[in-house]
Design a binder for these strands. Structure first.
Lengths: 217, 217
DNA sequence: ACCGGCTAGATTGTCGACAATTGACCTACA
DNA sequence: TGTAGGTCAATTGTCGACAATCTAGCCGGT
């Protein structure tokens, strides 16, 4: 799913591990992160834990107050809306750029990916499950070829999005509609129509937000 | 200009200092950042330097390779374009949200700010100088009330933008035209027309990008 | 002369100990 | 009883030393 992360240093590994544990809910939202405690739990020095925590702060997964400590962020409705506004903006741009910058083979790969998903939908499997949706969005993000943008989305935003999805249990009913939206986005990209691709991607994410927002009220 | 940063810890101060020195060009782009050397220069321990560098890595001002070291990023045309694509996307969204979320007093403050600038323009002062432009964009960003978005722009993107501006010397000729663009954006926000505000802001940044791109060829 | 491996120096990564700050509890006093 | 102040334990911030890793230069073989 996500491309091979290659943890080199001990701090890398600890960062990835901690991030996974928080996103998956092993460490609950709002939890205080005690450096000494984590240090013993993960079997590394406090310096390593500190570096990992600082990186999590940079992705907005953890908040730190000087001389007081670090806490996992709380999952709020406002936070989720903020996140989706950013997604709408950045992924819309990614789709626009992808229409210009994806190679023909990348596009045909994306189309065949979509066909595979179509088969699953026909057989009644819920399409809007993590893997398929994430995979789709992921390829378009990579297709934009803007490294800074790619990094912001894949290193920063997406883990937070996933945290909300996992912990608020969002495997919503937007099955076939979401699939159609994906199909139209790919069509626009294949036609090299960046403007349309952006509009469609933004609407797609906006619908998603509205759907979730409805469920949370 | 930028709101009061309150450096608490020694690492905070070192981070701000280092960032300023890099953005202003005291430490040139592409320079290798030796931890021990910086440690003696700034009069703090290596741990503090490491934390500061890691934060700079998170803002994409510095790149680090494990076991090798950290370097200040190189300023490339591609990097600048990437940055402006992100700005177009995020600040467009900020303008849209600002049209909904700014208070009436914030809007009237913004209008009077623009009037002050207009006086300067009438008197022949180059409007498109750092202070005025940054101030304008800054207020709109804050006006969006999306804390995550605010943080991405003010902590992340803007220092890089400034680094390009300072080091590539961009005090371009877009004087009165930029002022008009600002005026129209404020009008849209005052009318609570988010959609138009976004379109105008995106075009404003796009023009800016084209202008710079033209000068760099 | 050129290429591959090896050694030495320097740099980064990790660790445990010490210093500084915070928050809570406890006490004294109005 | 409630509040202000002080004390103490616990946590975070900072430091210097040690271990692991990379780069550059040297040496020997082909």
């Amino acid at each position: 799913m996500t491309p091979a992360q290659s943890p080199i240093t001990s701090a890398d590994k600890t960062f990835f591990q901690l991030r996974t544990d928080i996103v998956e809910g092993v460490i609950a939202a709002g939890t205080k992160l005690s450096e000494t405690e984590l240090s013993t739990n993960y079997g590394v020095s406090r310096a390593v834990i500190r570096e990992a925590i600082n990186r999590l702060v940079a992705c907005h997964i953890v908040e730190r107050r000087a001389n007081v400590g670090a806490r996992v962020v709380n999952l709020t409705t406002e936070g989720l809306i903020e996140l989706y506004q950013i997604r709408e903006s950045l992924e819309g741009m990614a789709a626009r750029l992808a229409a210009s910058n994806m190679t023909d083979t990348e596009i045909s790969n994306l189309e065949s990916l979509l066909n595979d998903h179509f088969e699953e939908v026909k057989q009644g499997h819920s399409y809007y499950q993590e893997a398929g949706d994430v995979d789709f969005h992921y390829r378009i993000i990579l297709g934009c070829k803007n490294n800074h943008l790619i990094s912001m989305l894949t290193d920063g935003i997406y883990h937070l999005v996933r945290m909300y999805r996992v912990q608020l249990g969002m495997a919503g009913p937007r099955v076939s509609t979401a699939f159609d939206e994906h199909k139209h986005i790919v069509q626009a990209i294949a036609n090299r129509d960046g403007e349309l691709a952006e509009i469609l991607m933004r609407r797609h994410i906006l619908y998603s937000k509205n759907n979730i927002q409805k469920k949370l009220l």
